[in-house]
């Protein structure tokens, strides 16, 4: 079979550099990736979408089963222009179009948005969608506005000792200089809503799948508190499949991660659908499929995974 051949070639090519825990490909059978397959798929992602790069990460966290210069993948400064919470309604509407049919084990991932979104609204006391008026919502004010232009700092406890710090220098009232810079206007809707994310993909040895990590920044490019990150995660997944943890390759900071326990099952399902439609899923495209599927969890984070193939479209 063509795919298997490809996998074998890849394996032969990389095995000298890498010794992975999984030695036999189970991409088609189980939806998982071996380490060499992860490297191959990562290389392909980096070459097709160069906003992604391989990184070494912190030396103290280096994983011996991955090449030292290809520990994980990352794309930085990815915009997130709207809160996922505020687009849930669109998801409800769009649920009918989701390709994958839902039966038992894919639950919570792709096809069930409509149903789950409305259920969880009641369960978790998520603010009613009617109140989500973009540009005026409370959640936006709660973004820490560190010395930002107009907003008063309502997170007083975060700026404690240095509250006393003022730039008292005598130079401060010198003659007004002409304006050389324009700063972003705080009343611009777009800017107010703009957060950015670093999105990284690590290899999860236990589940043998990629795993996605999110590091958020507010509109002033200050790290976003984890609880605010949940606003950018589909409410089906926030606090359930998405949790806050230490990053396996980075030195510090709190990062949101999509737990990989169901990744293989969902990937297997997608692969099956593609094959049933006459497609031949290739393992080097794993991450494109994977990222497309991740978009259901983080629908408003606009990372790059463009590929000219359409997942599950009947025409392929």
């Amino acid at each position: 079979m063509q795919v298997k051949q490809k996998v074998y070639e890849l394996y032969k090519g990389t095995v000298e550099r890498v010794t992975g825990p999984r030695t036999v490909s189970a991409f088609l059978e189980k939806g998982v990736l071996s380490v060499p397959e992860f490297i191959l798929a990562g290389d392909n992602l980096v070459s097709k979408c160069p906003t992604w790069s391989w990184e070494k990460g912190d030396p103290s966290k280096r994983k011996p089963y991955l090449p030292s210069d290809k520990q994980f993948l990352v794309t930085r400064n990815v915009p997130c222009l709207r809160r996922a919470m505020s687009v849930e309604e669109e998801y409800d509407a769009a649920a009918a179009e989701v390709v994958l049919d839902d039966d038992d084990d894919g639950e919570g991932w792709l096809a069930t948005h409509g149903v789950q979104a409305s259920e969880s609204k009641e369960e978790e006391d998520i603010p009613s969608m009617d109140t989500l008026d973009i540009g005026k919502v409370e959640e936006i004010k709660s973004i820490p506005s560190y010395f930002g232009a107009s907003e008063k700092p309502d997170e007083e406890e975060d700026i404690p000792d240095m509250d006393t710090y003022e730039d008292t220098g005598d130079h401060s009232t010198a003659t007004p200089q002409p304006s050389y810079f324009v700063a972003e206007e705080p009343d611009d809707d777009n800017i107010l809503l703009t957060r950015t994310y670093d999105v990284s993909i690590t290899y999860d040895k236990y589940y043998q799948t990629p795993r996605v990590w999110l590091t958020g920044y507010d509109e002033a490019r200050m790290p976003l508190k984890p609880d605010l990150v949940f606003q950018d995660i589909s409410q089906d997944h926030a606090h359930k499949t998405v949790t806050i943890e230490d990053h396996p390759h980075l030195l510090a900071g709190q990062h949101a991660s999509v737990h990989p326990c169901k990744h293989a099952a969902v990937m297997k399902k997608i692969i099956d659908v593609m094959m049933s439609q006459g497609g031949t899923p290739e393992v080097d495209k794993y991450l494109f499929i994977f990222l497309k599927f991740m978009a259901s969890v983080i629908p408003t984070i606009e990372y790059d995974y463009t590929m000219d193939f359409d997942l599950g479209s009947p025409s392929t």
């Binding site: 560190y146 710090y165 730039d167 220098g169 401060s172 007004p176 200089q177």
Partner: peptide, 15 residues
């Protein structure tokens, strides 16, 4: 912001 004659230096923090 040089234009308005004040110089409020932005102080940021890493937690």
């Amino acid at each position: 912001k040089p234009g308005d004659g004040r110089k409020e230096k932005k102080l940021k923090e890493i937690n």
